[in-house]
Design a binder for these strands. Structure first.
Length: 407
RNA sequence: GGGAGGGUACCCAAGUGGCUAAAGGGGGCAGACUGUAAAUCUGCUGGUUGACGCCUACGGUGGUUCGAAUCCACUCCCUCCCA
C-alpha cells in the first residue's frame, strides 16, 4: 500500500488542500514539509508523539521533514481550540522548554545527514519590524476572512486579544519563510491547525505566486469525543521524569474498549493486517489488544527495556497478584524515620500514594489502603526502620501500587 | 469615552448579612459488580486534627457590622451595546 493510502487507512488524515497533488508528492518522496511544535511546556505529550510518528512515516518514504520549534510563535500563543487565553510565558521559559523539546524530538526523528531539519522560528520572528511586517504581510490578510476562520470562532464569544489574533499571521509567515529558504512545500499539523495552515498556503500564493500544500492530522479523540492523552493530573508526558514508563503503560492499558483499535492504527507501527486481526476480539480478549497497545507505545517512547519492565510489573501485579521488581517505588531517607517508626499517614503522603494527610485518613476510612496485602484500619499504625528496610508494598484501591523502602 | 452585565472550589454553576467549607452537575478518588474496560449503585472530594476546634478560601485592597461570598468605597480583569 502506498504511503498516502496507508495514512488514510489508519485514519490519520483529516483534511488536505489538494489530494491528488499531495498524494503524488509524498508517495514519491518528493516533499519537504514541516510541522510546528510550540514549546508551551517542558515536555512533549501524546499529541506531539502522533505528529512525530506521522513525520517519521513520511520521512521513511523519502520525504524531508522540518521540525519547527515555535520559540517565536509561543511568544504570541495559539488561540486555536482554546476557550481562554494562554498564560503568557516568559522568554526564558520558552527557551528552556524548546531545549527540552529538542532533546526529546531527536529520539524520534533521524536528523543525521540532513535527512531532517530542526529549526526555531524565534530566529526570524523575534526580529521582525512591525511596520515592515504590516506592509509586506499584513496587507495580504483580510480581517473579514480571518474572523470567519474556525479557530477563532470559539473565541469570538469569550474574547480574543489582538496578540492572539496575530498568531495566524505569524504561522503563515513561518510557512512563507520556510518555502523561500528551504523549498518547503507542505505544512502538516493537528486538525485544529487547519485555518493557520491555510493562512500560509494563501500567503505563499499571493507573495510567490506558487502552490503550497497543507495536510492535517486527525486529532486523537476518545470515542465520545474527548481529547486523549489527558488525565486528571494533566497530560500524559513523554518525559519519563514527568510520567514514568509504568504510568505511561498503564494509561494505555486502561483505555476504553472502543478506543483500542483506533489507537493501534494511529499510534503504533503495527501493520494494518495485524491490527485488523484484532478488530474481532471481544471481552476479555480485548485486554490482550490493550496490552499490545500499551507495550508498543511504551517501547516506541521509552525503549524496549522500559516496556518490558512495565509489562512484567503490570502482569505481576494485576494478573498474578504477586509483587514485581519493576513496580513503582519510593525510597525514603532513613534519617527521616523517627525511632518510634513512621506513622501510616505520613508514609502514605511521603510515598506519594495520597495527596495530603486528610486524603490519607479518608482513604483508610474508606478501606482503600493495604500494606503487604493487609487491610489497614488503624491510623496509628507505625513502621520502624527494620520493617522498612525489607521494603513494604502499599496498595491504594485496585490500581495504585507502591513499593516503599529506605536507604 | 458613555451605558449594561459579569468574575464563586479542578470545570460549569447556585447562593444577596449568621443555619455556608459554600446547593446542584461534571470530573476525580474509594467501595460493590467486573475484564486493570464500560454501564450501574454507594460513599468521599480545602488544610490540619483521634475528635472538639483552628486555619485558609467566593478577582484585589480597604471599610461597615457582634458576624460578610453576600452591604459600602476604591481597584484590577472579562463580555455586550453605543462612540
Amino acid at each position: 500500500m502506498e504511503l498516502y493510502d496507508e495514512l488514510r487507512a489508519r485514519g490519520l488524515i483529516a483534511q488536505v488542500t489538494d489530494e491528488e497533488e499531495i498524494k503524488e508528492l509524498i508517495n514519491n518522496g518528493k516533499a519537504t514539509f514541516y510541522i510546528g511544535f510550540d514549546p508551551t511546556a517542558d515536555s512533549l505529550h501524546v499529541g506531539h508523539f502522533m505528529a512525530l510518528s506521522f513525520m517519521r512515516r513520511l520521512q521513511k518514504a523519502g520525504n524531508k521533514p522540518i521540525a519547527l520549534l515555535g520559540g517565536g510563535t509561543t511568544m504570541i500563543g495559539d488561540p486555536s481550540g482554546r476557550t481562554d487565553m494562554r498564560n503568557m510565558l516568559t522568554r526564558e521559559t520558552i527557551e528552556y522548554n524548546a531545549a527540552r523539546f529538542k532533546v526529546q524530538m531527536e529520539k524520534f526523528i533521524d536528523f543525521s545527514e540532513d535527512k531532517a531539519l530542526m529549526i526555531n522560528n524565534a530566529d526570524w520572528l523575534l526580529e521582525l519590524n512591525y511596520v515592515n511586517l504590516l506592509r509586506e504581510i499584513g496587507a495580504c490578510f483580510s480581517v473579514n476572512n480571518m474572523l470567519r476562520a474556525d479557530c477563532y470562532k470559539q473565541r469570538m464569544e469569550r474574547g480574543l486579544s489582538f496578540l492572539e489574533f496575530n498568531y495566524m499571521i505569524m504561522q503563515s509567515y513561518d510557512f512563507l519563510h520556510l518555502f523561500r529558504e528551504y523549498n518547503c512545500v507542505m505544512q502538516c499539523g493537528g486538525d485544529d491547525q487547519w485555518s493557520n495552515i491555510l493562512g500560509g498556503t494563501e500567503l505563499i500564493r499571493r507573495k510567490e505566486g506558487a502552490n503550497a500544500y497543507g495536510m492535517t492530522i486527525q486529532l486523537l479523540l476518545t470515542s465520545d469525543g474527548k481529547k486523549m492523552g489527558k488525565t486528571q493530573a494533566g497530560a500524559v508526558w513523554l518525559d519519563p521524569e514527568k510520567t514514568s514508563p509504568y504510568e505511561f503503560f498503564q494509561y494505555w492499558r486502561n483505555i476504553d474498549d472502543s478506543d483500542v483499535i483506533n489507537c493501534l492504527k494511529k499510534l503504533t507501527d503495527l501493520s494494518l493486517d495485524e491490527i485488523s486481526a484484532m478488530e474481532s476480539w471481544e471481552g476479555q480478549k480485548l485486554n490482550e489488544a490493550k496490552e499490545i497497545l500499551a507495550y508498543r507505545l511504551t517501547m516506541l517512547v521509552h525503549g524496549e527495556e522500559e516496556a518490558e519492565k512495565a509489562l512484567s510489573a503490570a502482569r505481576a501485579l494485576f494478573q498474578k497478584g504477586t509483587l514485581s521488581e519493576n513496580m513503582p517505588q519510593t525510597v525514603l531517607d532513613k534519617s527521616n524515620i523517627p525511632d518510634e517508626g513512621i506513622d501510616i499517614i505520613s508514609l502514605l503522603v511521603e510515598s506519594g500514594v495520597c495527596t495530603s494527610r486528610s486524603d490519607a485518613r479518608r482513604q483508610i476510612q474508606q478501606n482503600a489502603i493495604s500494606v503487604d496485602d493487609e487491610k489497614i484500619e488503624d491510623m496509628e499504625l507505625r513502621y520502624n526502620v527494620k520493617e522498612l528496610e525489607e521494603g513494604i508494598v502499599i496498595k491504594k484501591g485496585k490500581k495504585t501500587f507502591m513499593r516503599v523502602s529506605i536507604e
